[in-house]
Computed example of a mutant assay.
Amino acid sequence: MYRRSAAAAVLLAAALTLTGCSSADDGRAGAARTADPKPPAPSSVPDPADATTGPTAAAPPDAKPTGPVLPDAKLTPKTGSFKENEKKYLSGRVPEKTDPAAVLQIGQETCQRVERTAKRDKEAAAAAVISGEVTGARDAITLLCPEQKPVLETAEKGFGDGPRTAPAPGTYRALTQSTTCTWEVKGKDGSVLASGPEAPPKPGDRITATVPAGADRFTSTGCYAWLPA
């Protein structure tokens, strides 16, 4: 693993602010790189970004710089060389005047976090990707740690908290056992088609939601992430 210098870290932080990410997201991403994903509530299955499509929508794509980036010919470390898969990961991802090794390290750290969590519980690792707690997982896993592709495949079947339009019908389970998890399904006329849980959940209860055909909107709060039941 390549070590980034203090100067490179400063340049990287400045450049990444041009990507359009909010300061809140940056703060969350920075904190996420320092520790393994942690569930919001105790669960026998450890808890695993919000989209506005059906519940089977894939995790959001990795963000890349919107400003000038280093051409592939200049993607070289100060010492040694990058592997072919590392070059593919870095292509179009390194802002100008930024050390490519620093950007690569972020992807490697993402892989490490996914791997550490998956060793304990693969579903928890997928949930962390779904919720956005682990960012940049799609390209990192695909190009830097393909052995974790099962985690990514599971994450792409799920969706996170928040409003979703045109949800696919079916039964889903919340990847948390938080007693604050609530959900609601509405039709096109705004009427409530279903909501839950029917009774206040107790610690350890499994929370599920059934989306009927013709639903127009699914909204959940405090449920962290969902997967098909």
Rank of each mutant, 00 (worst) to 15 (best):
G187H: 11
D36W: 12
S131D: 13
G222I: 00
Q177M: 00
K64R: 15
L227H: 08
A15L: 11
E153L: 11
G222N: 01
G20K: 07
P203I: 00
S178G: 10
W226Y: 13
T142I: 10
D216I: 04
K186H: 09
T176P: 01
C181V: 00
V192H: 01
A13N: 09
E198V: 15
T182G: 08
R33M: 10
A41M: 01
P228F: 05
A102Q: 09
V103H: 13
V103P: 03
S131L: 00
G27R: 12
A8C: 13
V103W: 03
M1G: 15
A14R: 11
A63T: 13
R113T: 01
A59W: 03
V114A: 05
F82K: 02
V134G: 04
E109V: 02
A213R: 07
T53V: 13
G80N: 02
G222Q: 03
T76Q: 11
T221R: 06
P42S: 09
A140L: 01
G214Y: 03
T179E: 14
G190M: 02
A51M: 00
T19Q: 15
S131N: 15
G196T: 12
I141F: 04
G54E: 15
T79L: 11
P212T: 08
S5A: 08
G107E: 10
L144E: 13
V114D: 10
E198L: 11
P60S: 06
S5Y: 09
A32I: 10
A125F: 07
C21Y: 00
G80M: 07
D121L: 11
Y2V: 03
A58H: 12
T221V: 14
A8Y: 08
G196C: 06
A59L: 08
D216K: 14
G187K: 09
T165D: 14
R28M: 12
L175Y: 12
S220F: 04
R206P: 00
V151F: 06
G136Y: 04
L90F: 01
G80H: 07
R164W: 06
A15M: 07
E153S: 14
A8P: 11
G20N: 11
R217V: 01
A29Y: 02
E156N: 12
K78D: 10
T165L: 15
T17S: 15
E153Q: 10
M1T: 10
L90T: 12
K87C: 07
E184K: 12
A125M: 01
T135Y: 01
S22H: 11
A124Y: 05
K74V: 01
A118G: 05
